[in-house]
Amino acid sequence: MLIKTGIPSPEEIVKVKPGQSRLAKGPVAMVECFQRIPCNPCATSCPAGAIEPFKNINDLPKLNTEKCTGCSACVSSCPGLAIFIIDETYSDKEAVVKMPYEYRPLPEVKSVVEVTNRAGKVVGTGVVIQVVNNKKQDKTAVVSVAVPKELSMEARSIQIRKESTPENTFICRCEEISLQEVREAIAKGYTDFNELKRKLRVGMGPCQGLTCRQLVLTELSMATGQLVEEINLTTFRPPTKPIKISVVAGDGNEK
């Protein structure tokens, strides 16, 4: 199933779950990697030699749970974000799951977050107890979340925001224009796409509307009843991608 949906099946999970006796001893890695691809940073990053060196770079990782110290070095080194540290000894009722996290903003320590399963579905709440984001993590932070013990094999990501609202939904990411601002401007009479651009700066950022153009057009269409293809577009202006001044003009030193 993973190959089609990106979500591993229960049968696959069972194969990589550390044994109950190992889990009872403290933090241990769980490597949820099921696809043979040329990738081995988990093995090369493991300071304990718990992930066996690959004979073939396409091999699936083999974890020796007895050697594993639960240090989490492999968590941020895995480009597939497929490795987690499970600590079922954290407290009587809670386990800690250390997970890779690449979204921003990072959660705050002690904040209550919604915990999601491998499919992204919210399964409960947890408390962030640690966020590690140093140079070594290379922007893949390791977030430790305390969750009810029964969720230790379910909790694999978190959501900071409870729900998306027009205020917190960005339509134009470059200029940080929210859906709410777009709707308010349209309601105020800025129903021309060109006027809306100049009024709000939607599409004026580095991506020049590549991301937001369609979204704004859809909003306009829904508000005015005009078909998207009938709305006058803004002028497509060069350069297609941002270009450094020195690329065109040199650095000003040559004569």
Binding site: K244, I245, D251, G252
Partner: peptide, 13 residues
């Protein structure tokens, strides 16, 4: 203004 050399142009009109 040589300091501008590393700034990126994003649009021309």
């Amino acid at each position: 203004m040589p300091v501008l050399r590393n700034v990126a142009v994003i649009r021309q009109w």
